[in-house]
């Protein structure tokens, strides 16, 4: 009996060792051959997103546990708005304000901050602002902003969910001189929209950082409605009868279709909008 138990144990260990060895060899080959795609167009797998998200959550909780938040006042939030307009809105946007064009295609996408106070406590937000996040484009602000200024930012982030899109846009316009963004050049239109290209375009305009989209991996987010079964939905955004043509209109000029919408104009080109609309309405799983 004893010897059989040892045999089983040895077999298990040997199998484990062999499996580990194989995995290590596979990993080395994968890396050395350059098969891993480091490009930011190729998205992570959904489990990777989930793991990164959870890892971030637990890491920040742990590291921020001893930070004590001061009382956050309206005055602090007001000064925070100025800092936000200066340093944050470029990547994160604001209610009714799109991020700058170049930051839309970052991976991971910076995403909106309107729901951050539902995920983090003030001390955790302070830690995030202070330390930044590795392997993302989130910089550490410890050496750029004073402690007081970082708390002011945290105070303002707490106000974001209370702002309507118009209020958000007005508030930021007041503290920042917005210059018109030159529209990207229009590409020539192909005869037929390309659904596969549309799927990629949805990631490159950061649609997934506000909307859950079945078939497109990304973070869990509830800022905009999930884009599920759109073809079966009778209206787009509650305003336009569903058709690819109307979807193009909505994607390119949300505010003209639905005044006051939280969906910002993202300078989507006609060709990209056509491809996206085609994927959403006829190719999405």
């Amino acid at each position: 009996m004893m010897r059989r138990g040892r045999l089983v144990l040895l077999t298990m260990l040997a199998t484990l060792a062999a499996a580990l060895m194989l995995a290590a060899i596979a990993a080395v080959v994968m890396v050395r051959m350059g098969w891993y795609d480091v490009g930011a167009v190729k998205q992570h797998f959904q489990p990777t997103f989930k793991l990164l998200e959870l890892g971030l959550r637990y890491s920040v909780r742990h590291h921020a546990r001893e930070i004590l938040a001061p009382p956050l006042t309206g005055g602090m939030a007001q000064r925070g708005a100025r800092l936000y307009a200066e340093h944050c809105v470029q990547c994160h946007g604001a209610p009714g304000v799109a991020p700058e064009l170049a930051t839309l295609a970052l991976q991971p996408s910076p995403g909106p901050l309107v729901h951050m106070t539902r995920r983090w406590q003030p001390n955790e937000l302070y830690w995030l602002v202070t330390n930044g996040v590795k392997m993302t484009a989130m910089p550490a602000w410890e050496f750029r902003l004073s402690e007081q200024e970082r708390w002011q930012l945290v105070a303002f982030i707490g106000e974001l969910p209370k702002l309507s899109p118009q209020q958000g846009a007005a508030m930021l316009a007041a503290v920042r001189n917005t210059e018109a963004v030159p529209a990207p050049p229009e590409q020539p239109l192909d005869d037929r929209p390309d659904a596969r290209r549309g799927r990629v375009a949805l990631t490159q305009y950061a649609c997934r950082s506000c909307h859950m989209i079945p078939g497109l991996p990304g973070p869990s987010v509830d800022v905009g409605p999930p884009l599920r079964d759109l073809a079966r939905q009778r209206y787009i955004a509650g305003y336009l009868p569903t058709s690819e043509e109307n979807m193009v209109r909505w994607l390119r000029h949300p505010d003209l279709v639905k005044p006051g919408t939280a969906m910002p104009a993202l300078h989507v080109t006609e060709a990209d909008a056509r491809d996206m609309a085609h994927w959403l309405l006829s190719a999405q799983p």
């Binding site: 309507s164 409605p225 939280a262």
Partner: peptide, 14 residues
């Protein structure tokens, strides 16, 4: 998921 959405009708804060 209306309790979790950021906006009502895409226009008003929730």
């Amino acid at each position: 998921r209306i309790a979790y959405r950021s906006y009502i009708g895409g226009v008003l804060p929730n």
